[in-house]
Computed example of a mutant assay.
Amino acid sequence: MTDFTQKPGVSVWITRLERLSAWGAVAFLTLTIADILFGIFQRYFTGSSMIWTEEVARFALLWLVMLGACGAFLHGDHMTIDFVIKKLPLALQKLASQLLFVITAGILCLMIYLSYQNAMGMSHMKTMALNIPKTYPLLSIPVGFFLLLIAVVFKHLSYASSHMCEDAEKEVSP
Rank of each mutant, 00 (worst) to 15 (best):
I36E: 02
L90R: 10
L100N: 11
L138I: 02
A129W: 05
T32W: 06
T135A: 05
T30V: 12
A60L: 09
S21Y: 04
E18K: 07
A160L: 14
T135S: 10
I112S: 09
L90F: 04
D35N: 04
F28L: 09
L99Q: 08
D35S: 06
S162G: 03
F146N: 01
G76S: 05
A168C: 08
V84C: 02
A91G: 00
V153Q: 09
G121V: 09
H78E: 01
G47N: 07
C109A: 15
V143A: 11
A57W: 06
D167H: 08
V10Y: 06
G68T: 06
M111C: 13
D82S: 06
D77H: 11
K170H: 14
T46R: 04
L110T: 14
Q42V: 00
L130G: 07
H78R: 05
F28H: 03
E171V: 11
F59M: 08
D77V: 00
L149K: 04
P174F: 13
G9D: 06
V56R: 01
A160P: 11
S158W: 08
G68L: 05
I132W: 10
R16H: 09
F73K: 04
I14H: 03
V102Y: 10
T104E: 07
K7N: 11
S161W: 07
A96G: 03
S115G: 05
L99E: 05
L95Q: 13
M164H: 05
F28G: 00
Y44F: 15
F28E: 02
I112W: 14
